[in-house]
Amino acid sequence: ENDLASIIQAERLKPQETREFMENSFRDGEVKTTGTDIDKLMPPMSRFGHSNRADKKQTIIDKLKAFFEKYFGIGTMFSSDQK
């Protein structure tokens, strides 16, 4: 929980949505990076101008994948019910 909370704080992600995304990732056995799931976790950013949205999204994907790889399969069930 502490590792995920630090990612949420550092990247200013939406906490509940991020926890649900990771719960689904552990259930499905992979971090899905296609579609709009990652966008739903991200803080509001302009899609235009100099916001570097694509770079920010890639950074978030990299961090969530690293978290997933660290904890996937260690035998504990991850739950988004924690606050």
Rank of each mutant, 00 (worst) to 15 (best):
G75F: 00
Y71T: 03
R53Y: 11
F48G: 08
Q82C: 03
M22I: 13
I8P: 00
L64T: 00
R12D: 08
F26A: 02
I60R: 00
K70T: 11
L13C: 05
G49L: 15
H50F: 15
K40R: 13
A5V: 07
S79F: 00
A5W: 09
K83F: 14
D62F: 11
K32I: 13
R47Y: 13
S25W: 04
N2A: 09
S51H: 11
L13S: 02
I74C: 04
E23P: 05
T33Y: 06
D39V: 09
K65C: 03
T59A: 14
T76W: 06
N2W: 08
E20F: 02
R27W: 11
G49R: 09
F67Q: 01
S80G: 10
M22N: 05
S51L: 07
M45L: 10
F26S: 01
R27L: 13
I7M: 06
L64W: 00
N24R: 13
H50L: 15
E30A: 15
D28H: 05
M45W: 03
L64C: 01
Q82N: 06
S51P: 04
S46D: 14
P43A: 13
L41W: 02
E11I: 03
S79D: 01
F67V: 00
S51E: 14
S25I: 04
V31C: 05
T76Q: 07
K57V: 03
T76I: 10
D28C: 04
E17D: 14
F72Y: 14
I74M: 08
F67W: 10
P44E: 15
T76A: 09
E30M: 15
K40V: 06
R27S: 11
S46I: 09
M45A: 08
R47S: 14
K65Y: 04
K63G: 00
R47C: 10
F26K: 00
L64G: 00
G75I: 01
F68A: 04
I74L: 09
P15T: 04
T18H: 02
M22F: 12
Q16S: 10
I61E: 06
K65N: 08
R53Q: 08
K70M: 11
E30R: 15
T33E: 15
E11F: 10
E69A: 06
P15V: 05
T36F: 13
T59Y: 12
P44A: 15
D3N: 15
A54H: 14
L41R: 04
E17I: 11
S25G: 10
A10T: 11
K83I: 12
V31R: 02
F68E: 03
R27M: 12
F72L: 05
T36D: 15
I61N: 02
I38M: 04
P44F: 14
F78L: 09
A5L: 11
F67H: 06
T76K: 09
D28M: 07
T36N: 13
K83N: 12
I8K: 00
T34Q: 07
K70C: 07
F26G: 00
L4T: 04
Y71C: 06
S80R: 05
K14H: 12
T33V: 13
M45K: 08
G49W: 10
E20H: 04
M45T: 06
P44C: 13
I74E: 03
P15A: 03
G29V: 01
G73F: 13
K40L: 12
G49V: 14
M45F: 06
S80A: 14
E11K: 11
F78G: 01
I74N: 07
E30S: 14
E20M: 04
F72Q: 07
